[in-house]
Amino acid sequence: MFQEMRKYRNLVEELVVRDIKTKYRRSILGVVWSMLNPLLMMFITAMVFSQLFRFEIKNFALYLLTGQIIFTFYSEATNFAMGSILQNSSLIKKVYVPKYLFPFSRVASCGVNLCFTLPAMLAIMIYTGQTISFKILFAVVPLVLLFIFCLGVGMLLSALAVYFRDMFHLYGVALAALNYATPIFYPISIVPQKYIWIMKLNPLYYYLQAFRDVVYSNVIPDMSLMGLCALLAIVALVVGYYCFNKLQNQFILYI
């Protein structure tokens, strides 16, 4: 499998480049949108929520931005990966290519997109006077683990979407629910004690917690939180890969 990976490394690169190119083709600002988009979204949400709801959160801009970066990456990567098999059907029918490359390359291109948004986050950190220390480097850990988690979920979804097209509609609703179940724009303290278990069922909660610990609270997240993130990532990857592998030989009959 590793040999195969090496052989097709070039293909993964080309697929990622294609995704990014087609995403920004014919737009004047191009890749700058990757930076601008989360910032503009943050400004709007910040305006709405700081005036309307008045949460007591210090440095609300950064709090919001960290939440949005994590959630947007997850929703984009999984959503984009879900359609990867169906949208590459013409290819899969004609040429042999290891099929897991398609969800993988899509999650990877969202990962590249994520990297473009990080300078925007850094700019906001500097602008709001957030203390930046070497600890910021630890932000990579939750992001990498989240990447693996997305890969697992993306593989599972892309395989399921081949058999049941309903997944596209269903998952849209699921993402909306997940959006509210993740503390992106509200503090965790406003969640009533009896509902906190719902939040703890949400895997994104842990990734966001770890990411915020580093970026927003400037502390290194404790090992149990990191361990949990890693465990979730591995479980997602194993389940996703297993299901994908089981279903992939039949893909061609359904696409």
Binding site: E13, L15, T22, R25, S90
Partner: peptide, 22 residues
């Protein structure tokens, strides 16, 4: 089979070539 209609001939040569393992 592996052409992306939005990309140019040049870009497609690299994409399609990669699909064939070059």
């Amino acid at each position: 089979a592996g052409f992306d209609p939005e990309l140019t001939a040049r870009e497609n040569i690299f994409l399609n070539g990669a699909i064939l393992g070059h």
